[in-house]
């Protein structure tokens, strides 16, 4: 799963074109934007590959406040399927959510 996920999200160029469409961006912190969600997954996966774990309540919140609405996806020049990447990452966090926050 992680490999599939990476294939999709490693294309992200951090251009931020997706952010303006996101309904939760009013929260300002980037973990509540599509760009931030994708890149927090990248941060998580990178650390995991190094055998480290990430403790971040904001990451958890960012991922689970994604509405799956898809407003971001149509504007991504890199073709990242943002809502799907976030959704499939939820599954990973579901099992670890307590670990991530405590």
């Amino acid at each position: 799963m992680v490999v599939d996920l990476l294939k999709n999200i490693s294309k992200c160029s951090f251009c931020g074109f997706c952010e303006i469409s996101c309904p939760t961006r009013f929260l300002a912190k980037r973990n509540y934007t599509p760009r931030g969600r994708i890149n927090s997954i990248i941060v998580f996966v990178d650390l995991e590959a190094k055998g480290e774990s990430l403790k971040s309540e904001e990451m958890l919140k960012g991922i689970f406040t994604c509405l799956g609405c898809g407003a971001c996806k149509i504007h991504c020049p890199a073709g990242v399927d943002i809502p799907e990447a976030v959704r499939s990452f939820k599954a990973k966090l579901n099992k670890n959510s307590r670990k991530v926050i405590e």
Partner: peptide, 16 residues
């Protein structure tokens, strides 16, 4: 915010 992920996301740019 001092959250580690927030700190990371706010210290990157479009040339990585």
């Amino acid at each position: 915010s001092k959250d580690p992920v927030v700190l990371q996301l706010h210290s990157m740019d479009a040339i990585k």
